[in-house]
Structures are given as C-alpha cells and as structure tokens.
Computed example of a mutant assay.
Amino acid sequence: MQKIKVFLVDDTPTLTRCLEKVLNKATNIMVAGNAIFTAANQKVIQENVPDIVIINLSSNEKRGAELVGMITKEFIALKVIVLSTHDDFNSISAMLKSGVKGYLLADVKHSELNKAINKVMQDETYIQNTVAGKFINGYQKENHVKAINNLSPREVEIIRLIAKEHTSADIGKMLFISEHTVETHRKNIWRKAGVKSIVGLLNFAREHQLI
C-alpha cells in the first residue's frame, strides 16, 4: 500500500518531532520531511514530493498565510492542512478561500488529525468537528446577509406587499408608482432571489426573515 507523504512546516521543533512520531505510526502515512517557515520555500517542498503539507499557523501566522498562498498558487495538486489557534468563521473561511483543504486547531487529537489527512487525500475538505458548527453558522449568516443586501429597500417593500396578496396594480397605487414599474421590480426580485413562483418567493422571504 502506497503511503500518504506528509510534509510538516512549523517553527516549533518539539511539536514537529511529536507530530512526526505520531504520524509515522500510522500504517498509511509517512512524514516526507519538515522545515521551519524561513526554509519552507518552493524548492524545499518540491524536493520532498509530498502529497499533503501541514502548516502550523499558530507558530508563525504571517509566514504561514504567505506559505499557504504560495503553495496553492504554485502546486495546484498539492493539498494543504493548517493547524491554527483561531476557531472563528472569518479565519476558517479565509483559509478555505485561499485553497486550504483541511482546518484543524493546534491541539487537535492525533486520531482526528489522521482522519483529516485521509479525508483530504480523498479530495474532501475537512474542518475539525469542534469548530465545524461555528463555521456552518457563520456561513449561513454570511449568505443571509448577502441575500438581503442584494435586494433594494423598494424590492423588500414589494416582497412584503406580495406576501399580503396585493396585485401589481394594488402595489403601484400604494407606492405611487406605475404598474409597469412594479412588474419590473418583480422580475428583478425573481432573479435576485433565484425563484420561479410565488411559493418560492414566499419561502425565500420567510427563510430570510423578510415576512
């Protein structure tokens, strides 16, 4: 069985040795090499031919972010897992958007680290269980805000009137605009909300707490 080759980047030699010892115990994982941030450049990584690079951001966050950017740009097939002290949505989201495939806290249990390596190797994205809930909640809130901000105040007003079963003619009279203008707003609302029917629009409005 071909082993997964892992390359470690960390400015903390003690932790590096500990991780190396633990990972080499796994039957399908081997540590191909390690480096501190100042030495972890394109050539060093290329020479070790790893499948996955694990970067401990907590020991050098700035260098770590720079290294993540370099790897995801220069080595498209190479997968990156980061270890961090941050468990908030913005930190996780920023790393995932940069191309990271795995996000774990620095004190992650070794069994979950092994699980993350195997999942990432299968081209899955892995977020540590204890922080996954925060990320999902943050993702939902971000999308909620985007959806609401995508609509103009007038469009939100019209959605609420549609929900009260007013016709376009009724809405035009209530808002002192033409029926044609109301119809234009309705088309824009349909497009922005990504719906095709009144039922879909009402579901969207309820989901985003517009009604």
Rank of each mutant, 00 (worst) to 15 (best):
G33M: 05
R17Y: 09
L67I: 07
E183T: 01
K43S: 09
E207G: 12
V195F: 07
S111G: 00
K141A: 10
N129T: 15
I117Q: 05
K119F: 09
E207F: 07
L202P: 06
Q209D: 12
T184W: 00
A26I: 00
E20F: 00
I71A: 07
K173E: 02
L78T: 11
S178H: 06
M30T: 08
V120T: 04
P50G: 10
D11V: 02
T130R: 13
I4H: 01
M174C: 01
I54F: 10
L151E: 11
R186W: 00
F135N: 06
S197M: 01
E207Q: 15
E179C: 02
Q46H: 12
K97W: 04
M121A: 06
I159Y: 04
N114F: 03
T184Y: 03
T85A: 12
S168D: 11
G33K: 05
N129Y: 12
R160Y: 00
D107A: 08
E20L: 07
K192E: 09
V199T: 15
I171H: 04
N149M: 10
R154N: 09
E183C: 01
M70L: 15
H166D: 01
E61Q: 13
G133S: 15
A65Y: 11
V44I: 13
V53C: 12
S84E: 10
L8F: 06
R191W: 01
A32Q: 04
C18I: 13
V53Y: 08
S111N: 10
N114M: 09
V100K: 04
S58P: 02
I117S: 07
I52P: 05
T12G: 02
S197F: 00
G64F: 08
V68R: 03
K73A: 13
V82A: 08
L67P: 09
P50Y: 11
V82G: 08
V195L: 09
P153D: 09
I55L: 14
N24R: 03
T181L: 04
A169E: 15
N203D: 15
T181F: 02
S84V: 02
K196Q: 08
K21V: 01
V80D: 05
K43D: 12
T184S: 09
I45M: 14
L78V: 06
D87I: 09
D123I: 03
K97V: 08
G99V: 07
N203V: 13
V199F: 09
H110I: 11
S93I: 07
Q128I: 06
Q140M: 14
V199I: 13
A40S: 10
V199E: 15
S98Y: 00
I36D: 03
L67M: 10
N137V: 12
I159K: 01
E20P: 03
E66S: 12
A106C: 08
V68E: 07
Y139H: 13
D10R: 05
G99E: 13
E124F: 11
L83C: 07
I159R: 03
M30C: 07
E179F: 04
A132E: 14
E179Q: 15
K101C: 12
T16D: 00
I45T: 10
A40P: 04
N118H: 06
K101G: 04
T85G: 04
T38N: 03
F135A: 11
N24V: 00
L210E: 05
L23C: 02
A116L: 06
Q2L: 11
T38V: 10
M174L: 12
K43E: 14
R160V: 00
T130D: 15
G99S: 09
I71D: 12
V195P: 06
D11W: 02
A147S: 14
T167H: 00
E124L: 06
V131M: 15
